[in-house]
Amino acid sequence: MIRRISVACLCIVVLAFLLMPDMFRPVLQPLVAEGMPPIYDRANLLMLTLAHLGLVVAAIIPSAILAVSLAIFVSRPAGSEFLPLSRALTNFGQTFPPVAVLALTVPLLGFGLWPTLLALFLYGLLPIFENTLAAFVTLSPSVREAAAAMGMTPRQRLWRVELPLALPLILEGGRIATIIALSTATIGSTVAARSLGEVIIAGLNSNNLAFILQGGILTAALALLISEVFSFVIRRLQYTQQAR
């Protein structure tokens, strides 16, 4: 209950800040020197937030599709040989620093959206892939056997039994990947992708603590809220299938 209330409060504060940033002027004013703006004014904060979210969604959805498909493939008899390769690939995506991805891909893809999307996409693969795989591996052998023994085709087993039972763990992976992407998206602004990173970078460049704080706190608040949404859905799903 307390958790719900605090999430609702956070949600209201974030919305208020995005819709009426001037209301927060008195709070942020003491953080900046005389004559400097306390609220980011070079772009609309709401638009930047939406662009930030859009960037994350545009990277995580294809990342999730690839990671889940890959996990399905390597957990079938025909694809099991490719398990080590897939692991190596997704691990590489995770360990390769996003900044390095940006530096390497800007010459190929140019400034702006695309290098950032690629970096976030690669970064999201591992958690979703590993969680999906774990979900398949931990599926109860008797449930798996029952699905085959009832006369389900391999495709029916996947869609009717394995994927629905794996869904909570897959979403858990999606939650982790999304949170990471939300914070990592800020560095996209170093290569001119539109995100809340722009506010932070502007603050660093002009030595404006208020800018840095509002960019950082907004990003963190978004991550928290989205994580809560995922957790809520996961809890609802698990309620109906506790005995997995």
């Binding site: 008797s142 023994a149 299938q241």
Partner: peptide, 29 residues
Amino acid sequence: HDLRRRIGYAIQDHGLFPHWTAARNIATV
């Protein structure tokens, strides 16, 4: 899969699908 739909199968730890209700489990085949 056609053969198995014609042969009932009941196992020790029942292997019921945890995400389906009892009625839907019975309706599987």
